[in-house]
Amino acid sequence: MTERAGSRLERVLAAGHFAVTVEVGPPRGPNAAAVRRKAELLSGVADAYNVTDNQTAVVRMSSIAGARLLLEAGLEPVMQMTVRDRNRIALQSDLLGASALGIKNCLCLSGDHQQASASGKLNGHPGAKHVYDVDSIQLLAILKGLGEQVQESGDPIAEPARFFIGAAWSPLAPPEAFRVLRLAKKVAAGADFIQTQAVYDVPRFAAQVAKAREMGLCDQIAILAGIIVPRSARMLQYLNEKVPGVEVPEELIRRLRAAVNPASEGKMIAQELIEAVRVIPGIRGVHLQAIENEEVLPEIISAAELLPRPVLNIGA
């Protein structure tokens, strides 16, 4: 495969390493120091760091700005971009800007519906007008085009804006039979790597990955298995019941409920999940999330024997 964007993540995967990405949520304010603090905390534990784009439709510092702040702190960002808030003009403009700022990885998402912004303690913006001019798969095609110096309309751009192109995959969400086909569509549209919905039910996940492998998809993309570090039985129960595509086996919930120290048991579970997905053929890395609890990540990644992260020769 020819090099797409030359990002660190792309090179780590190309060199055959088992990749590690982690999620860094930008603050709900203009505080650059808050991003730098997280960067400092997580420096060296991952190959790239996802910066979310107003996740759950709650207003936060933009993913472009967050990604640039990470770059300045010496970390490689995966800029997340949803199609909820921008039409194809704004998407392409922001992608050109992101490229100019040195951002090389972009994860293309549908984005949470604006109604989700009011589901917690915040008022959110449920009355907002959403965009959805294009969908996440059409966005993948747009990124591919920008790398080939062509806009969505067919108009040329002066220089290519190259990205290592990411997409999400929720293999266990219904309709399950279609999920592998949807993955195939994402690959065909231009995806280079995948970060999946959180995996707890490893056998079911492995079965879907096996189908993707049979279709030859795993030769064309790098799939990183998503893992959300659990903190309590209640959290697992919530994920199982409320978050589509997340299937948590009852025994995991029971185990965390019985634990004397659920937080440390949760870290243990995360470590075991990493080890379990690592041996699934076709899985090329993990994408770890510890929501508002990022400080646990270095310990988990270290315990899973994924440190130190590979050092790549610049310009190699």
């Binding site: 984005g111 519906h113 109604q115 969908d135 059409q138 219904p174 309709p175």
Partner: peptide, 21 residues
């Protein structure tokens, strides 16, 4: 579709086939 998607369902399909929204 709550997001007017053109190429298949987002990740928000519930277990019972309902919309997450």
């Amino acid at each position: 579709c709550a997001k007017s998607l053109q190429n298949g369902p987002c990740g928000g399909t519930r277990k019972d086939g309902k919309c997450e929204v």
